[in-house]
């Protein structure tokens, strides 16, 4: 059931918090079906930029289009129901079973019929056992909870997924697993995904295009290969230098032994 995800276009988008320019006149095109990573240090404006796409944050100026539709022309809650949203703190509803957590988007859309089947399908998709459905969120590990978070976001078959440091709080092994599995899901479902991360290694592995942000501006917009070749500017180079140095160190260690 490949869905074709929409393209996204930002035109001169800005957002200020008091005197701070979180996002400063960003213009950008994201191709349909791409997996784009927004990389940058804390406070670089990447989360703000992401949240303006589903109107969790409203821009002060500029316009954002999903496909050809300006997002400001759609009621926020209607818009958000068409977009999957996954974030670091997961936010499962502690008073609902996993099944109800996953199906809540369907419930909001009034699609109660067949939701049990859909929940089963989604549990398979995020590789959770079926008996998870009847459990409560606090009975699951962090990794399992974020799998549920992803399943919940996918329940209404959105074409676009927005992910804000989705695996940032998980242990490295779980994180690596989930990253790989999500990449496969993205391709299988034909999604457009924008993922915010501060981890360049993750971005290099996951994304087919990487946007480097600093001070509210996009400093680099390149493929992982271009970034690694060192042609994407000094901000990008500073971020790439860290995994590159780590990799070199590991290789050196391997040769010694």
């Amino acid at each position: 059931m490949p869905v074709s995800g929409p393209s996204i276009r930002l035109q001169n988008v800005s957002r200020h918090y008091a005197a701070v320019r979180a996002v400063d006149g960003v213009s950008l095109d994201i191709a349909a079906g791409s997996l784009v990573a927004l990389v940058g240090l804390s406070g670089s404006g990447k989360s703000t930029l992401l949240k303006m796409i589903n109107r969790l944050v409203e821009p002060d100026s500029g316009e954002i289009f999903i496909g050809e539709t300006p997002v400001c022309s759609i009621d926020p809650h209607v818009l958000r129901r068409r977009i999957g949203y996954v974030f670091q703190n997961i936010g499962l509803f502690p008073h609902m079973t996993i099944a109800r957590n996953i199906a809540i988007g369907l419930e909001l859309a009034g699609e109660k019929e067949g939701s049990a089947d859909r929940v089963a399908e989604l549990l398979d998709l995020v590789e959770l056992p079926q008996d998870t459905a009847s459990r409560m969120p606090d009975q699951l590990s962090g990794g399992q909870q974020q799998r549920v978070g992803v399943a919940r976001a996918l329940a209404t078959r959105p074409g676009l997924m927005l992910m804000d440091e989705p695996f940032g709080a998980l242990d490295p092994v779980t994180r690596d697993n989930l990253t790989a599995q999500y990449k496969a899901l993205h391709q299988r479902l034909g999604l457009t995904t924008v993922i915010v991360t501060h981890d360049m290694a993750e971005a290099l592995y996951l994304a087919d295009r990487i946007l480097v942000m600093e001070g509210g501006k996009i400093k680099a917009n390149a493929t992982p290969a271009e970034l690694l070749s060192g042609n994407a500017g000094e901000e990008a180079e500073a971020l790439v230098a860290i995994p590159r140095a780590q990799a070199a160190h590991l290789i050196a260690l391997g040769k010694k032994s």
Partner: peptide, 27 residues
């Protein structure tokens, strides 16, 4: 009410009343 649950409710596209009914009131 846990800010994460609130953010999730907003992200899922709940209206103010739905958020109250599904999330805030029960919690």
């Amino acid at each position: 009410v846990d800010p994460a649950a609130q953010e999730a409710a907003d992200g899922l596209g709940m209206t103010g009343n739905q958020k109250l009914y599904y999330v805030e009131a029960p919690l």
